[in-house]
């Protein structure tokens, strides 16, 4: 993968240790990773660094911080064209399984997929890859 084609992923999590670990894991798959520990930092990075995708933890300052951040990114002209994935352990807490695999769910949650924590990096990478490939084929 050439350097100008290296995709830049914005990773957001308020747990600095998980942030660090996932950064290293995603980088090992050949991506560039920029990290933010909260929604405010994340929005600034999104504007200045122009990432190609965002992976956001759901529960940060509030229980729905991830959804709100996702909404703000998707509202942006450039942001609506990048994939946003939300990480959650809500399934364990609420017993209710979130997903965004169907069009209807994507429309409702406005993100491109929900991933259970702890994240299986190969799954995440696979979903990112398939999204990027789809974009390429469209272009």
């Amino acid at each position: 993968m050439q350097s100008d084609e290296t995709k830049k992923i914005l990773l957001v999590d308020d747990d600095v240790d998980l942030l660090e670990q996932n950064k290293i894991l995603i980088e090992s798959k050949g991506y560039k990773v920029i990290t933010a520990e909260n929604s405010k930092e994340a929005l600034e990075l999104f504007k200045t660094q122009k990432p190609d995708a965002a992976v956001i933890d759901l529960i940060m300052e509030e229980h729905d911080s991830g959804f709100i951040l996702c909404y703000k990114i998707k509202k942006d002209e450039r942001g609506k064209n990048i994939p946003v994935f939300i990480l959650t352990s809500a399934t364990y807490v609420t017993g209710f399984k979130f997903d965004a695999s169907t069009e209807e769910e994507k429309e409702w949650i406005k993100c491109d997929g929900m991933l259970n924590k702890p994240v299986v990096i190969d799954d995440l990478v696979q979903r990112l890859e398939s999204y990027f490939k789809l974009e390429e084929s469209k272009a």
């Binding site: 747990d15 240790d17 998980l18 290293i24 894991l25 090992s28 364990y92 807490v93 924590k117 702890p118």
Partner: peptide, 29 residues
């Protein structure tokens, strides 16, 4: 109980994550 479990899980997940990094041979640190 669910709140406690959540609070206990976070540090366990963090330490577990580091141990996995150490044991993953494809990761260079």
């Amino acid at each position: 109980v669910s709140m406690v479990s959540h609070e206990l899980k976070a540090p366990i997940a963090a330490v577990y994550g580091y141990l996995k990094l150490f044991s993953d041979e494809s990761i260079v640190i």
